[in-house]
Design a protein around this nucleic acid. Structure first.
Lengths: 370, 370
DNA sequence: CTCGATTTGAGGAACGGTCCCCAATCGTGA
DNA sequence: TCACGATTGGGGACCGTTCCTCAAATCGAG
């Protein structure tokens, strides 16, 4: 009778995070416990993995008794399905959101609506930053989501070429938010920027302003910018001015929809002679920068210069700022985007276009010119 | 001789997004093209999948000639590895970031630093929202990341119990940002909130203020809140006040680090008699709300009430706001968090604690009391 | 009580990577 | 010339799911 010498514990932690034992390798948590898998649940409940899988997806062909038994095993073991393994075969129950950056509070509204809508259907949103308004970074962000097999993608304020969006949309359900091009393959959610810009400019004209300037965003990338929202707002500004015989007073500063951009653009505009009596900023962030620049120039709002923003961010309502702004309902836009993705997954193949109508919220940053 | 009837095209799109043909199923893009896999690259380059995999991970044991040949095939076919398949065996090259919400611009700084640091190492950050300061939502967000097998997790301003964080950290490299508890299993990145709060309160006292109030955040969840940053700031405020013999003037409003919270808290504080001559808000967002409330009450800043914030958000620097604020370097904090995660992956097992020292930026929202 | 239709559960083959082995080749020194 | 170590490339098992296929069990009608 030979002696059997036990070497090691039979359960050794190796560097790669796997346990080696009798030549069998398993994914383990780093503190040595194996992660609970569907097989564990199956054997614990004395059923097949198929049955467990069916219960998980509440698929057809499982009796109530089976459902209860399996659910008990799941709860007892604290089992959670691994998204990666699911992705290999089917859905990930994940939607991806591409934001240019997370600094704009308006995106937070969109996201809140989106989250609320999809959570009910068991989906999780993951966000990736497109790092500013750089087209290349946006492509990288989208690729990252495609690589992770998300079931749908929401792209906010995309700057990349439409062809690229369509290519993606042919493979993954896609909603594009805040772009005005019409596509047959992806869904669109947008604000009627033309109506919004009209509200802003008409409001200023009605107050008696004639020298009304506009702060817009500089174009980047090769996309036909006429489909981008900032271009629509700028074009509409020019059109409304012209319609009122104010074409000669059109004054544009192309910077960025940020505090810095608004500040810089306003400095440029105020340096002109005669200087404008009103500024329509394409976004609240830019309007805040404008307020600062006007203040720095020793001028008063609305006494010397009236200011209108766009987005109606929460800060616009604060009484020491009190910015007149165009309100678009970000929550609804986000909710709708979520609903459209869910519909696509349910099988819809025709493209849908959803537009919200903006309203003007007048506050103390606008008044008749002196 | 029987007739053979061909049914269908031999390449039929079925509902689940797979192609059925001779009993073989493949993942296909929805427009009918099969997604390029490592096998395609291998056969195109006339090598094994092993070789391709090695090139992808630039692993040991591949000649320069092989590398060039495989890389050419990869480029030619436009191959991209599927994260899900990698996750089944190895790394996902993905880090997860849990944010309470994306509305706070300070988080954007953290994220920018983090992204910059990890992008160089080939990692991608995905963000999930913890939906406000609700502990349950935070748990869901973390679970979502664990289910997706991220290689590391950055949790910002977590409110859940430390035990839960440690459980997660034992399985996935974890960095906790903005919490003051010491852990042996996860790394910490934080601002010296005690020093920061001291700077703020000492500044107001040095100006001659005695009735200094503080706006803090209401506690949620079961976590021992003494480790949370808002508690540290509040406790430090009380300590510094007491040290200067001003204990009787301690006045706290516990609302939230948001515009609404700051507004509401300030209304409460201003209603007291005698009313405070200075307010130290635990965050800039709250300070902005405070400025609005003071304005609404018909009072002037800093004439009647001085205000200090925390975070030094960009908006604080705008000259019409000009908020004195405590600056903490979010970019550095984010960068460091990224570095720490990468180090963990490289094998570090000892816990690290990294603290940035805040500075005070004085602006026109603070002045000696009238 | 028989027979066919309908449920229910199980077996097992993928999915697309990674990585443990091992085989083949090559270079070098004795 | 031969032995041997180092280098390079390939075979194939495996990760945790999903879902196709099929057998067994159950049921209802006649």
């Amino acid at each position: 009778m030979g002696n059997v010498i036990h070497r090691g514990t039979g359960l050794e932690l190796v560097q790669s995070g796997r346990v080696e034992s009798n030549g069998v390798r398993h994914m383990v948590t780093r503190d040595g416990r194996r992660r609970v898998t569907i097989t564990d649940v199956a054997s614990h409940a004395r059923v097949s993995t198929t049955a467990v899988s069916k219960v998980l997806r509440n698929a057809y062909g499982v009796s109530e008794a089976m459902r209860v038994k399996v659910q008990a095993a799941i709860d007892e073991l604290g089992y959670r399905p691994q998204a990666a393994a699911r992705a290999m075969r089917g859905r990930t129950f994940t939607f991806g959101v591409v934001l240019p950056h997370i600094r704009n509070p308006f995106f937070a509204d969109i996201l809140d609506g989106f989250d609320e809508q999809i959570a009910g259907a068991g989906y999780q949103a993951i966000i990736v930053q497109g790092s500013g308004r750089d087209a290349e970074a946006e492509v990288r962000a989208i690729d990252a989501l495609v690589d992770r097999q998300v079931d749908g993608i929401l792209v906010v304020a995309a700057v990349i070429a439409r062809a690229r969006l369509e290519e993606m949309a042919r493979n993954t359900p896609t909603v594009v938010l805040g772009r005005h091009d019409r596509s047959a393959v992806y869904d669109s959610v947008l604000d009627d920027d033309e109506a919004g810009a009209e509200l802003a400019v008409e409001h200023l004209i009605a107050l008696g302003h004639r020298r009304i300037a506009h702060i817009t965003q500089k174009d980047v990338g090769a996309v036909r910018s006429v489909t981008l929202l900032h271009t629509i707002r700028a074009r509409t500004y020019e059109r409304v001015m012209a319609e009122h015989g104010l074409a000669e007073h059109i004054a544009l500063a192309a910077t960025a929809y940020t505090e810095e951009g608004g500040h810089q653009g306003t400095c440029e505009l105020l340096a002109r002679t005669p200087r404008p009596t009103a500024i329509f900023a394409g976004a609240d962030q830019a309007a805040f920068g404008a307020l600062a620049a006007i203040h720095e120039a020793g001028l008063a709002v609305p006494g010397d210069v009236s200011v209108v923003g766009y987005d109606n961010a929460r800060a616009a309502a604060l009484s020491h700022i009190s910015l007149t702004s165009v309100d678009q309902d970000g929550i609804i836009m986000g909710k709708t985007a979520g609903r459209l993705l869910l519909e696509r997954i349910e099988g819809r193949t025709t493209a849908v276009r959803f537009s919200v109508t903006p309203t003007l919220v007048t506050r103390r940053s606008t008044a008749p010119p002196a």
